[in-house]
C-alpha cells in the first residue's frame, strides 16, 4: 500500500521528556565498543571543555526513534513497519548531548515518495532541551521495501 502523501509537511507533537542518564551514555558507548573517556569520566569530559560527560555523535538516534514512533504508529500513514529498513541518516549537532539533559524531540515529515516499488519516508526530528535550546537535528529516510505500487522490489541495494 502506498503511503499517504498528505503527511508531507506534517509536524508531530514533542515526545515526553527524556533525561539523559550517564549510565545510558556508558551503555551506548559500550554497545558501539567505544572506550573514549569523555563518555564515562566527568573529569575527562571537563578537561575536553564540556560541563559533564557527553554522548557519542549517533546517540541522538534514541531520541529520533522516539519521535519517529509517533509518525510510524499513525495508521493513516499506511506504513508496514515489518518491511522497513533505514535508508539514510544525518545528525547536525548544535551542541553535544550530555548527561543530565532533559530532552524532547518533535518529528516532521519532510517528504514521501515511491521509487522502484519501494516507499521512502523522510523525517526530521528536532531535538531540544525542555527549555527549547536546540541540541540536535536528525534527518532520516525509512524505506519500506516492496510496499509501493508496482510491487517488485529491487533486491540489490537493500539498505539496512
Amino acid at each position: 500500500m502506498p503511503l499517504d502523501e498528505s503527511f508531507i509537511g506534517r509536524a508531530f507533537p514533542a515526545t515526553e521528556v527524556w533525561e539523559v542518564g550517564r549510565e545510558k551514555i556508558r551503555e551506548f558507548a559500550d554497545a558501539i565498543g567505544d572506550a573514549n573517556p569523555v563518555y564515562r569520566d566527568r573529569e575527562a569530559a571537563v578537561a575536553a571543555g564540556h560541563p559533564d560527560v557527553i554522548a557519542p555523535p549517533t546517540f541522538a538516534v534514541i531520541l529520533a526513534l522516539r519521535a519517529h514512533d509517533l509518525v510510524i504508529a499513525d495508521p493513516e500513514l499506511g506504513l508496514d513497519y515489518s518491511r522497513v529498513v533505514h535508508g539514510d541518516q544525518r545528525f547536525t549537532h548544535h551542541r553535544p548531548v550530555r548527561a543530565g539533559d532533559q530532552l524532547v524531540a518533535s518529528a516532521h515529515v519532510d517528504d514521501i515518495k515511491s521509487r522502484a516499488g519501494n516507499d521512502f519516508l523522510s523525517m526530521r526530528a528536532e531535538i531540544t532541551t525542555v527549555e527549547g535550546e536546540p541540541v540536535c537535528t536528525s534527518r532520516a529516510t525509512l524505506v519500506a521495501r516492496g510496499t509501493a505500487e508496482p510491487a517488485p522490489a529491487a533486491e540489490e541495494g537493500v539498505p539496512a
Binding site: 539514510d88 541518516q89 544525518r90 545528525f91 539498505p159
Partner: peptide
C-alpha cells in the same frame, strides 16, 4: 555534523 546513506 555526520551523515550516511545505507547502500547495502
Amino acid at each position: 555534523d555526520y551523515g550516511v546513506r545505507f547502500t547495502r
